[in-house]
Design a protein around this nucleic acid. Structure first.
Length: 944
RNA sequence: GCGGGUGUGGUGAAAUUGGUAGACACGCCAGACUUAGGAUCUGGUGCCGCGAGGCUUGGGGGUUCGAGUCCCUCCACCCGCACCA
């Protein structure tokens, strides 16, 4: 097939559009294993099906080509990331082509291509040049904000901002450019801030939260610590509410929506300020339970809280400092592992509880997090479990305020109970009390009702080489200047040394000429993170070659959004949230007509590896000699349990011990090890191949069962290190792409994880041969022009119905079995009629594009089968004269009966009552009723 | 702990609105053709039982003429988040 021409798709057509997208692959050096194409096959079938049913289908593919692995490889090997990445892409492309995907490669994109990242940089500049206006509820140009500042200062501005001071117009005018820049940074959607970041010494770089697993870097497993650095950030929090709200409009799985909702983490509560006794300072807290304030007997600040040093009294200084040292020494892992252990110290300071009018002590505690809420809490030990544990440990007072005796199992989050010990709240239900408190707090002027989000702004800087350079340059004052859009792309310099520069700076800092290329300014040396390029790639496919815009308005208006997105759950929060955010931002700017990028999302499950294990005797001490060190012996599964092995005599023979004496055997041990699944047929080890695998097995001896070596099996992650990866290339070579595609689908529902087992592929292979044999005999194509009989038409239309319905609901495994049944049935009738087999060929084309194309051509068609028209289901062929009813007695099937379709319920009842089986079971017992379900079944209910 | 998901033969699974549980395959067993079979074809195959028959969708309970499917409850495993104020 000439893929490029056949699958090239136009933006100019009267056909309705359909956009099928696969998740952007990162071209890793390991190539594809059988788990990767699962989603691609499903989406390809769907795309082909949509084409056959008259849609203009956009089904593109490209590569997320920037990333850390290529850079680490470059550090090791000296090979430039661009070179290794291109090699990997070439390999991926070959592997993908092998499987027969209908991608329009003329639209291929690569994030590391300057023609592509020019527009990634352009979008970044748009983010830099916009702020989020709360009144307009959208992004607006920063120029507009500057005009407002110049006229009125910032008092009337409602924007998503981290700037808290108020200034007047004349004060703005008096600011230096540096000061103005600093103020504006608090408003820009792409901005710089100093913050705690995940610093990884070993990688010499900062990692995103989702790149850190259990306190270690996801890649390499190096320790990660908190460090303060100035970083670019994206103000994704400005979009939190819209990202949450619009989830409801998406056709995504509940699980995935729940993950995003969790991540955004909206909670409603009160923002409250507590006065600190004796200081002109207030502590801001956030609480979802303002009703419990009469039980707030102390406060806790995060150890990293800004006010800690100011609040701590002289006599508590030493204790507090010791505690801060202790906290600093704790890694993320320590903190996570020892969740139950509470630690804390008293600062010596007191806050004033505005409702009880008492002074309550201010403590520090690890369990209060700097990054959540305000980093401070009012502690209510009577109703919060953690506060309770803390109070118990440090002997702080506990005052009960909520009577929950009516709700014995309720937790704090249930927000139920009746208030007491709480002055004006007494007797109120919790929900009412919360509302009352919002009013009281606002009346007192000490706070307000507030929405809090767990979502944090995204760190957008990486101290790496292999990413998009920032189109930003700094002047001597450190003011950030956006590069002129006309000068984009700002391309990466060619480096030879990819090690991080000193002080955790990007390797780019070493390229001095590059850094100083703009007169009087210095370029930013950090690069953008992996999600930059992947947050908008689906838009570029709409108009991939465009040199003047990221995509033309016409192209965007035609394609609108992605109708179907297929990919794994690993991107559930990262990529899918960032993409949605960028999409909304570009919508705000008027570039996009849709609010959301991905209408429907299907998450494919993982294909797990089915590992094969062998058992090696790792110790066999006989006569104080470890014979296992001299001779390698492997035992088959039956003997893998030492107990089963029992008496070691049977082993002793293998070691050449003539007269085995049990007492001389003083030690025996077995070790299981993974062997390459490719040298095992099912569960039988190919001993010869195994011997040649490694030199130490060359002369190994085997303890067999039934003359065979049977391996153990284990389902686990598919991974090179477990020797359980299966390369699709091998399967395509042995069975053909059609067979491989259909078998992947046949394994089970697309969303479900399941282990790979190559053995089963033969069932699909047999099917394809049988399918072929309907069309051909020994001498070639052998089709008849005879009119089909009723049964043949019924088989065909049943299949058309089933396939159409199942493709629409992404049930591809049942499609494959429907095809198998269809071919089995037609074969039974020896059907070779063109009127049946021609539509069947089209029906199968999305699944098996090669064999159907070949048959189609042999049938004399000059155009491709992939441009044919999908057969239409005609219900008339399924109308039946008679229907086979199962006859049940009290719900258990006892007989079947063939009944004319026109027969009335009464007639059916009479007929059924005369059945021998029915008479036998009734046998004089009382018949309570007879239920006839049309076209389904008959149930006779008798009194037992 | 919270949120989401899954649990059906030896294995992968099917059963779309409550209506014949185990379709379609793998594996296994038997047979045919073959010098041979890890090729091909045919038949059998949930479990217990010689049989009649009984049992069976993670366990227990409920609704119903009828439950894999609906409700309650418990258990196991997987995924995500995790001291979230």
């Amino acid at each position: 097939m000439e893929e490029n021409k056949l699958y090239k798709v136009s933006n100019n057509t009267s056909k309705p559009k359909y956009y099928v997208l696969d998740m952007f692959p990162y071209p890793s050096g390991a190539g594809l294993h059988v788990g990767h194409p699962l989603g691609y096959i499903a989406s390809d079938i769907f795309a082909r099906y949509k084409r056959l049913t008259g849609y203009n289908v956009l089904h593109p593919m490209g590569f997320d080509a920037f990333g850390l692995p290529a850079e680490q490889y470059a550090i090791q090997s000296g090979i430039h990331p661009a070179v290794s990445t291109d090699q990997n892409i070439k390999r991926y492309r070959e592997q993908l082509d092998n499987i027969g995907f209908s991608f329009d490669w003329s639209r291929e994109v690569k994030t590391s291509d300057p023609a592509y990242y020019k527009w990634t940089q352009w979008i970044f500049l748009q983010l830099f040049n916009h702020y989020y206006d709360v009144d307009a509820n959208k992004a607006l140009p920063i120029q507009q904000l500057i005009l407002t500042f110049e006229k009125n200062g910032n008092a009337g501005v409602k924007a998503h901002s981290t700037y808290e001071q108020i200034f007047l117009a004349h004060e703005w005018h008096q600011m230096s450019s540096k000061e103005k820049d600093d103020v504006l940074m608090n408003y820009r959607l792409a901005y710089r801030k100093k913050g705690y970041v995940n610093w990884c010494e070993a990688l010499g770089t900062v990692l995103a939260n989702d790149e850190v697993k259990d306190g270690l870097s996801e890649r390499g497993g190096h320790p990660v610590e908190k460090r303060a650095m100035i970083q670019w950030s994206l103000r994704i929090t400005a979009y939190a509410e819209r990202l949450l709200h619009d989830l409801d409009t998406l056709n995504w799985s509940d699980a995935l929506k729940a993950m995003q909702r969790n991540w955004i983490g909206k909670s409603e509560g009160a923002q409250l300020f507590f006065d600190v006794v004796g200081y002109d300072r207030k502590i801001e807290i956030f609480t979802t339970r303002p009703d419990t304030i009469f039980g707030a007997t102390y406060m806790v600040l995060a150890p990293e809280h800004d006010l800690v040093s100011q609040l701590t009294t002289q006599d508590q200084k030493e204790t507090v400092n010791k505690y801060l040292d202790y906290v600093g020494s704790r890694t993320e892992i320590d903190r996570m592992v020892e969740v139950k252990e509470v630690t804390g110290v008293f600062t010596g300071a007191y806050a004033h509880n505005p409702f009880t009018n008492s002074n309550i002590p201010i403590w520090l505690g690890e369990y209060v997090l700097k990054d959540y809420g305000t980093g401070a809490i009012m502690a209510v030990p009577s109703d919060d479990e953690r506060d309770h544990v803390f109070a118990k440990k440090f002997g702080l007072p506990i005052i009960d305020v909520v009577d929950k005796s009516q709700w014995p199992d309720a937790t704090l989050h249930d927000k139920v109970g009746t208030m007491f010990n709480s002055d004006f709240l007494n007797g109120m239900q919790v929900e009412v009390a919360i509302k009352e408190m919002y009013d009281r707090i606002e009346q007192k002027g000490i706070g307000s009702k507030k929405i809090n989000y767990k979502l944090r702004d995204a760190n957008y800087s990486r101290q790496r080489y292999w990413g998009e350079p920032f189109p930003i340059a700094y002047d001597n004052d450190g003011v950030a200047h956006a590069m002129d859009v006309d000068n984009l792309p700002l391309t990466l310099p060619n480096l030879e040394n990819f090690q991080p520069s000193s002080g955790g700076k990007s390797p780019l800092a070493r390229a001095e000429q590059w850094v100083t290329q703009i007169d009087g300014l210095e370029l930013e040396t950090d690069t953008m993170p992996g999600f930059a390029g992947s947050s908008w790639y689906f838009l570029r496919y709409m108009d991939a070659g465009n040199q003047n815009e990221f995509a033309s308005g016409e192209a965007i208006n035609y394609w609108q959004d992605v109708d179907l997105y297929v990919g794994g759950t690993e991107h559930a929060v990262g990529h899918l949230l960032y993409s949605r955010c960028w999409h909304k931002f570009l919508f705000d700017l008027g570039y996009l007509p849709t609010l959301e990028p991905f209408k429907k999302l299907v998450n494919q499950g993982m294909i797990q590896g089915s590992s094969r294990l062998v058992w090696r005797v790792s110790e066999f001490i006989y006569n104080d000699l470890d014979l296992a060190k001299i001779t390698t012996v492997l035992v088959s599964k039956k003997y893998s349990d030492l107990n089963t092995l029992g008496d070691n005599e049977i082993l002793a023979k293998l070691y050449g011990i003539a007269n085995y004496e049990k007492s001389k055997c003083s030690g025996m041990e077995l070790t299981s090890l993974h062997v390459d699944v490719n040298m095992v047929d099912g569960i039988y080890l190919d001993i010869e191949v195994f011997r040649n695998w490694r030199p130490e097995y060359k002369n190994a001896k085997f303890l067999l069962e039934d003359n065979k070596y049977i391996c153990g099996t284990q389902v686990e992650k598919m991974s090179k290190s477990l020797y359980n990866t299966v390369n699709p290339d091998d399967l395509v070579k042995n069975y053909g792409a059609d067979c491989f595609r259909m078998y992947e689908m046949f394994l089970g529902p697309i969303e479900q994880s399941k282990p790979w087992d190559t053995k089963g592929i033969e069932g699909v292979q047999k099917f394809l041969r049988k399918f072929w044999s309907l069309y051909y005999n020994e001498s070639g194509l052998n089709l008849s022009d005879e009119l089909p009989i009723t049964d043949e038409l019924k088989i065909l239309h049943l299949t058309i119905k089933k396939i159409t319905e199942d493709i629409e609901r992404f049930s591809f495994n049942t499609c494959v079995s429907a095809f198998m049944m269809c071919v089995n049935d037609l074969k039974r009738l020896d059907c070779n009629k063109k009127q049946i087999l021609e539509p069947l060929c089209i029906l199968l084309a999305p699944f098996a594009p090669f064999i159907t194309e070949e048959i189609w051509a042999d049938m004399g068609n000059s155009a491709s089968v992939h441009k044919a028209i999908f057969p239409n289901f005609e219900p008339i062929y399924l109308v039946q004269d008679t229907i086979e009813y199962p006859v049940c007695i009290n719900g258990k099937k006892r007989d079947t009966i063939e009944i004319s379709a026109q027969m009335s319920h009464k007639e059916i009842e009479d007929l059924v009552m005369h059945l021998d089986q029915v008479k036998k079971y009734v046998n004089g017992k009382q018949i309570l009723k007879v239920i006839v379900v049309t076209n389904r079944m008959v149930n006779v209910v008798i009194k037992e």
